[in-house]
Design a protein around this nucleic acid. Structure first.
Lengths: 194, 194
DNA sequence: CGAATTGTCGACCAATTCATTCGAAGGTAC
DNA sequence: GTACCTTCGAATGAATTGGTCGACAATTCG
């Protein structure tokens, strides 16, 4: 059939979908196994633990994101050098951000606790929530944990301005503005209304 | 403050959001309580059990759907009588469908098992999945449990044709065609490409 | 072929999680 | 005061869950 490495990847992709929907805590090994149509114990042949899988998933998805960003960066050609260095500085912060998220997830927290934890790091709640949404594509569930009417409104409003980065597969959007929007949102939570 | 009945409704709405995202099994009383900013045990003052809450949620949401349908039906004016009776016959089947879903959920199944169960009732897998999507707004998670590439494709394609019913809040769409689309999808899984 | 290696799985376990109970107590109305 | 409404922390027993182990297919390789 396929080799071990390829099968690991299959697990990563499949588990990734489940994780991204249910969060780390709520995802069970049984589900991961079931989705792959295999016995639970077989998974332990490929990965040491649930956390091990999760780390691989995060790694994998971070890579995709990084590659997409790199591609986007390469496509930018206008005020070239300035733009480029500006972008790479931001890439560094993204690396840090990514590590930060990993650290939090390592602690076995679910999406709710995750928000709680992240709240303490940012003074404006919306930013914390937006980051979760962007990082995990967790759109709907996030609204369950929003504290105040005000915040809910703020998030809603901001989300409307997010169309560019969230649906950046729409190829017709100018690549440069798209890139900027993505970077802004990813690193600083700054969103401009269109 | 507010009376007991109103508070029950608050719980229903809040719990409903969580249920619709995580399914019955994965939703914990702690989460429901936390979302409402109250102690877990307090909820038992308003509801007898988790299942009790869930039933109330289903009831509540079915009512909303029924009301929306009724409103839509009233707005239809063209080949009046024929249309109207045709619609009410379908309303009856909806009632049945709703009961059927309730019965399945009563068994304590999560979304995965739910699909498994529903699969046995329909010969074409896509239809089962589409029904789950429509009934629960569970779009993303559904793809974790799709069996074959073919089915995934079929669901994807069909979803594209679903824009009318899924986003029927877009008021600009002609009400009559909207109604028809909704009814078609709800009761028979019949979807026309636009 | 046959033996070594690779991969799968059911049964099992210890630890944790979860729905639910209960009694105490804060609030409020009379 | 007392009666009632409401909230909650702590406790519990049952169910769930991550992970282990040994048996046993399947495949590879000599």
């Amino acid at each position: 059939m396929i080799n071990k490495e390829e099968f690991r990847k299959k697990i990563i992709v499949s588990a990734g979908q489940i994780f991204s929907h249910y969060g780390f805590k709520k995802t069970t090994m049984d589900e991961i196994a079931k989705a792959l149509k295999m016995g639970k114990s077989s998974i332990y042949y490929y990965f040491e633990s649930k956390e091990d899988i999760f780390e691989a998933v995060v790694q994998f998805e971070a890579n995709i994101l990084r590659n997409e960003l790199t591609t986007a960066i390469k496509a930018v050609e206008s005020p070239i050098d300035k733009m480029r260095s500006y972008v790479f500085v931001r890439m560094k912060s993204f690396e840090k951000l990514s590590n930060y998220y990993n650290a939090i997830f390592d602690k076995n927290l679910d999406h709710f606790d995750f928000i709680e934890t992240i709240r303490e790091k940012y003074d404006r709640e919306e930013l914390a929530i937006l980051r979760l949404i962007i990082y995990h594509g967790a759109r709907k569930k996030v609204f369950n944990v929003v504290n105040s009417e005000y915040t809910a409104m703020a998030v809603q409003t901001t989300l409307k301005g997010l169309e560019v980065p969230l649906f950046w597969k729409k190829k017709e959007v100018n690549i440069e503005s798209r890139l900027n929007a993505i970077l802004d949102v990813l690193f600083y939570g700054i969103v401009k209304k269109r």
